[in-house]
Design a binder for these strands. Structure first.
Lengths: 175, 175
DNA sequence: TAACGCATGTAATACGTTACATGATTCT
DNA sequence: AGAATCATGTAACGTATTACATGCGTTA
């Protein structure tokens, strides 16, 4: 296990995968959908990244096949070693603060456009923000109806930041 | 110019570069620092990406050398074609909403930790959020003292979202 | 039985990061 | 003179996206 730092460098994908598997065992296909659903505003990964990553994590002993189902599907679960690595990463590694968010780039550059063009862009963004907010609200309601969930506070954070953005866009349009 | 879609695919780096040059002519070195300063919460790029990108943009006629200075430095400016491409991108292309934000991944996964471990992570994040907020506040004050700037609203958006995050972290620590 | 969604994989290409490499100017 | 900072570039490697490819199971 001394080669850990070498086999698992500084990628977040593997820790995102470990985290999702820590919540609940899943197939690669499930994970791909969860990246869209829960982690869409944090990280993105398609199945062509996920399957090889699961293979590497299995080889490193951090995940294991806990069940096989229809259509030759394999359900993976996290191992104790995987949980340990996840904890180590969260507690002991320096967070990489660099982001890539194309929407933020657009919101930044929109200041350079002429008023008419700016309106067009801001309106599209507002529409998207409102739709996203509605989706988050539904998620929150579903969780509350089900009696809560560990990730409920994270959904709330999303709702608050989205509200800030929605208001900002409206102000920019009014100005 | 019909090969535009082919020579300039779907990368945001080039549009971020075009945007920064639309604000003000700069050297590659300047651009690298501006990515840290103004675009840190949106996109990241080191000089080893920027210099080749400037060369490609120059070849495509979207930027041009507008001055040469000491230490064989070249200052680039945006051309009309570059401005056109920037406008086209902002108005006519579908935004790529996928993000990669390691901090967001960590904030999501922190829910899986035991309370003591969670505290450690949240405290570190709060410290960072407060420092970042202070930095943004200084930026805002500098802009206001200088009589305003097109990007002032963007700084304000950053301040508001950071405030939301700071409050959320405090709540999580109090809970 | 055809269409659709579940499920998994690889190959080619594009993009991004780190390390390597060099040289000019300014400041102490 | 030496250190720090400005300034530019390339090479090697790692990561991510897109396209290609296949097959199972369910539903209409």
């Amino acid at each position: 296990m001394s080669s850990l730092v070498h086999t698992l460098p500084r990628m977040s994908l593997r820790h995102a995968v470990l985290g999702l598997l820590a919540t609940e065992p899943s197939t690669g296909y499930d994970l791909a959908r969860k990246f869209e659903a829960s982690l869409a505003n944090a990280w993105h990964a398609g199945h062509s990244q996920i399957y090889p990553e699961l293979a590497k994590l299995e080889e490193a002993g951090m995940v294991e096949v806990v069940g096989e189902g229809a259509r030759r599907s394999r359900t993976y679960g996290i191992t104790d070693a995987g949980r340990g690595e996840l904890r180590r990463w969260l507690l002991e590694t320096e967070p990489n603060r660099s982001q890539r968010n194309e929407t933020a780039v657009r919101w930044f550059l929109v200041a350079l456009l002429e008023p008419a063009d700016r309106r067009v862009v801001l309106e599209r963004e507002l529409e998207h923000a409102e739709a996203y907010e509605a989706m988050l609200r539904e998620t929150a309601e579903r969780i509350d109806a089900a009696g809560g969930h560990a990730f409920r506070p994270t959904v709330d954070l999303g709702l608050r930041t989205t509200a800030v953005m929605r208001d900002w866009l409206r102000e920019q349009l009014d100005a």
